[in-house]
């Protein structure tokens, strides 16, 4: 197993807010890492630093042993980081198919990019909506469009920021199954504020609180962690 992503002692301050306090993690290729924590724990901020939306205040980010700490987001996307946004950000003026097509690197393949866009849409179950305006989709569909658009990059690392939030039970289990199937193609970090619903599909997990990692390890380790049990699994401090 080789390391695909390494985060070393990353900090992020927004003025007085210390949103991420010294997070370190390493992700192996083909791994699905769960990233849990309550609202405001710093999960999205960590994603934004990994994806390059803004640089960390201090610390280092490496993609496949290459230091990308100071590289802009577009270059990291080209280097193989695909991400979704917690608050969906579709290109509203484009159709669903065009949203995905726009993300396929131009002049990359010999194949037909439009056919490729359709394949991806089919995989996430959005093919019937291909020609609809992206702005007209329901939340559940928008979440899947986010995933489809990230997949169009053929990423080595996929950052999924609460893709399950706001979905119905059946949508959740469908998408969770789909995400599990993506492990063959990419290493994944899956953010969820609900430990219970997705810990089962993870190879490993990290739990954050108030900007810091409070637990990490195998799903079993996480389940047994007293701090996590107190905070998430509804058990009293015993």
């Amino acid at each position: 197993m080789s390391g695909i992503l390494t985060v070393v002692d990353a900090h992020k301050r927004f003025g007085g807010i210390h949103a991420v306090r010294g997070v370190s993690l390493a992700l192996n290729s083909g791994e699905l890492l769960g990233l849990f924590g309550p609202n405001g724990a710093g999960k999205t901020t960590l994603f934004n630093m990994i994806a390059g939306l803004y640089p960390p205040t201090s610390g280092r980010i490496e993609l496949a042993s290459r230091d990308v700490t100071r590289e802009p987001a577009f270059r990291r996307a080209r280097a193989g980081i695909g991400r979704t946004f917690q608050v969906c950000r579709p290109f509203r003026g484009l159709t669903v198919a065009e949203n995905v097509l726009a993300a396929i690197p131009p002049g990359s393949g010999v194949g037909d990019d439009r056919a490729r866009a359709r394949e991806i849409l089919d995989a996430v179950g959005l093919l019937p909506k291909a020609e609809d305006a992206a702005g007209s989709l329901t939340l559940g569909m928008l979440k899947r469009l986010e995933v489809a658009r990230a997949l169009a990059l053929e990423p080595k690392l996929l950052l999924l920021d609460e893709p399950l939030a706001g979905l119905t039970a059946s949508e959740t289990s469908d998408l969770l199954g789909f995400i599990q199937g993506l492990k063959a193609r990419a290493s994944i970090i899956l953010v969820d504020h609900n430990v219970r619903q997705s810990l089962g599909v993870c190879d490993r997990a990290i739990v954050m609180d108030a900007g810091a990692v409070i637990a990490s390890g195998s799903p079993d380790t996480i389940r047994r962690d007293p701090g996590v049990r107190r905070a998430y699994l509804g058990e009293s401090a015993a």
């Binding site: 987001a73 996307a77 579709p90 290109f91 484009l94 726009a102 690197p105 990230a150």
Partner: peptide
């Protein structure tokens, strides 16, 4: 439509 989302796709 969205410059940040556009940079996220390269």
């Amino acid at each position: 439509d969205d410059e940040a989302a556009a940079s996220a796709i390269g």
